[in-house]
Design a protein around this nucleic acid. Structure first.
Lengths: 150, 150
DNA sequence: GGAGGAAGTCAATGAGTGTTGACTTATTGG
DNA sequence: CCAATAAGTCAACACTCATTGACTTCCTCC
């Protein structure tokens, strides 16, 4: 069992759709077939077989994600929301900044109790975002989706 | 640009190796070829073309990961370490427990200042682990690698 | 100016993938 | 008992993938 087997299991749109459907709740073959509007039973069977690394059938015969399946789901989430981290960092900086401004002008005697935690949090969060998760603040040209090329 | 293009880019062992190599630093074609011990230039070219969604060539012509590439790297990390969350949760519980024990018996007057933060942290961390990340504490049979089948 | 490395491109080929539709086998309701 | 639904299996097919090795084009060093 290596990680590329898991990625193999999610490197097709239909298989990602199956993954998301199974994440909601365990489901039967025919229900899955109806839900995803797949005409051919053979086709669904083919894709389910490709996903063996991330799926188990429970005691009632329902298709269910295993731990690896939920890990794969998180992987899908990370990749589809890869722009999120940057935005969330800016939002955080803005919030911390406003909090500091507010306490500075309205309750200066408590300001130290706001400044230190917010500064500490921002330091830790920035380390986590930029060093551990290797997010870059400036887009490197790969972020724009559906860019019109003339 | 959809997420399955990214997973396509990392659903082969050689492409994951390339991804990890590029994560270290930008690199030239021939250096990458040497480093991964690939004999055929055509083969490396084939895989690099498959990875177009996650790679850019910088101003010096060096192959470099784009943001999507780093997101893919995190996805690889999550999938290869999918058992990590559970272990880390238990470790955390153990640490918090020992901290509580220690303060309870040696510095009971400060105990409240330890109990409340640790309890709060454990509550938050458990929510994050089990609800947000859908980690299950008990293995569902998909965790054992290389299980011998008789 | 020729050798040799860098950075590929390209055609060929066998293996694997995605899809269809026909077929099976078991279960259930009227 | 019959028809319908569930849950697949299987053969066939066109298409894509992974890999090889030969070839090109540019650059640099001796």
């Amino acid at each position: 069992m290596t990680s590329d087997e898991v990625f193999e299991a999610i490197s097709h749109p239909m298989r990602i759709a199956i993954l998301k459907e199974l994440a909601k709740k365990p489901i039967r073959f025919a229900d899955l077939k109806r839900k995803l509007r797949i005409k051919s039973g053979g086709l669904l069977d083919f894709h389910l077989k490709k996903m063996e690394a991330v799926i188990i059938t429970d005691k009632d015969g329902l298709y269910t994600l295993n731990n690896r399946g939920f890990a794969a789901l998180r992987a899908v989430h990370i990749v589809t929301n890869y722009g999120w981290q940057r935005r969330s960092w800016w939002l955080n900086v803005l919030m911390m900044f406003m909090l500091n401004i507010y306490f500075f002008f309205t309750a200066f005697e408590f300001y130290i109790f706001v400044a230190i935690p917010t500064f500490g949090w921002l330091l830790f969060y920035s380390y986590w975002t930029f060093v551990k998760r290797r997010v870059s603040l400036r887009s490197n040209g790969a972020d724009q989706e559906n860019v019109e090329v003339s």
